[in-house]
Computed example of a mutant assay.
Amino acid sequence: MIVVAGEALIDLVPSSQGPSLDGQLPALLPRRGGGPYNTAVALGRLGSPTAFCSRVSTDSFGEALLNGLRGGGVDTSLVQRGAEPTTLAVADISPDGSAGYGFYADGTADRLFSLPPELPAAARALSLGTCSLVLEPGASAYESLLRREAARGVFTALDPNVRPGLIPDPEAYRARFRSWLPHVALLKLSEEDALWLADGTPRRTAGRTPVRAGCGGCLYGGDPGAGGGPGAGEGGGRSAVLAAAREWLAAGPAAIVLTHGGAGLTVLTRDGRELTVPGERVTVVDTIGAGDTVNAALLHRLDAHDALSYAALAALGDKDWEDILRFAARAAAITCSRAGAEPPYATELAA
């Protein structure tokens, strides 16, 4: 079983781009979301035995979130409940399909997550990330879960999925991020997030919305230069990211997977290897949930390679990694081809 821990929330997605001709604002359509939530649903759809560990509201949105998990075959026995409202994320979709977010998270249920008892014996991997590791008091509980389960030998995966608008003290967060690395087996992050964590360079889309997601793992076709890619970082960003990644690897992870928008994915390994695969060509509707789909696809395919352990991850060869990364690229492309966080089912990838 793979346990995914973190927030579940509701994305409010505009039904159209900008005001209508008569000046009316577009309707906001509620969609189930949250990085960890999307990852859990994606894993369930791919056929991996999965459990979700979080705190979910008892309001109607919370019930809808639980129904979405159950519909994907995800175990909800580790979900805590609370009467507080569900977190809302208002999405802003740009013409290229990338999404920015403004969050309404004060006093919401998922922020009050508490450290659960030891995970079930069947738990082989734990995946964490996004807002859940930022917003207190829940963030400290999720951090304690990461440290405790890593000490027990559970395979751990981390996707920071940085939301700068939610981080009041960036330097304190960067220090906290570095403190997690000795407890992480697999680190996955977008090139934009890596650059922000490495040297504090503002994300390229900063200023347009309170929080900007970028492509964050969406692998798509079209303009080969769109959406960033290896070497696309400004001001020597590529070298800064690689230098930082090597430091992060030395601190703990066996491997780091970087996503480059339309240009694909790169894996960097602790023994000094670097392998990149291209993105899959697809017409982008939006990028919501694409990076989360990458998380799920990586874990699912690693399990297929019997590599959900630190030693097995470190022992993977280049051909193994090429298969794993290409699988993740295909899965993310399907998510990008449809509205909202709608990850693919196993049958779609088999086809």
Rank of each mutant, 00 (worst) to 15 (best):
G317Y: 07
G317A: 11
G317S: 13
G317H: 08
G317D: 15
D318C: 02
D318K: 08
D318Q: 13
D318Y: 00
D318F: 00
K319I: 02
K319L: 14
K319N: 14
K319C: 05
K319Q: 14
D320E: 14
D320A: 15
W321D: 08
W321Y: 10
W321Q: 10
W321A: 09
W321P: 08
E322S: 12
E322W: 02
E322T: 14
D323L: 03
D323Q: 14
D323K: 07
D323I: 05
D323T: 15
D323S: 15
I324C: 04
I324H: 06
I324G: 07
I324S: 08
I324T: 12
L325K: 01
L325A: 05
L325N: 02
L325D: 01
R326G: 02
R326D: 03
R326K: 14
R326V: 06
F327I: 03
F327P: 02
F327G: 06
A328Y: 01
A328N: 08
A328P: 09
A329D: 00
A329K: 02
A329T: 02
A329E: 00
A329W: 00
A329I: 01
R330M: 06
R330G: 10
R330I: 04
R330Q: 14
R330E: 13
R330F: 05
A331M: 10
A331S: 10
A331D: 04
A331Y: 03
A332R: 01
A332D: 03
A333K: 01
A333G: 15
A333Q: 03
A333D: 01
A333C: 07
A333L: 05
A333H: 00
I334R: 05
I334A: 04
I334E: 03
I334P: 00
T335Y: 09
T335R: 10
T335H: 10
T335W: 09
S337N: 03
S337I: 01
S337W: 00
S337H: 00
R338M: 07
R338E: 04
R338V: 10
R338K: 13
R338I: 07
A339I: 00
A339M: 04
A339T: 03
G340F: 03
G340S: 06
G340D: 07
G340W: 02
A341P: 02
A341W: 01
A341C: 09
E342V: 15
E342H: 11
E342P: 00
E342F: 04
E342N: 15
E342L: 12
E342Y: 03
E342M: 13
P343C: 12
P343M: 11
P343L: 12
P343S: 13
P343I: 11
P344W: 12
P344R: 10
P344C: 11
P344G: 12
P344S: 10
Y345S: 12
Y345V: 07
Y345L: 12
Y345A: 13
Y345I: 04
Y345N: 08
Y345F: 14
A346L: 15
A346I: 09
A346C: 05
A346G: 05
A346P: 00
A346E: 11
A346W: 08
T347Q: 11
T347W: 13
T347A: 14
E348M: 06
E348K: 05
E348N: 07
L349P: 03
L349Q: 07
A350R: 14
A351R: 12
A351W: 05
A351G: 08
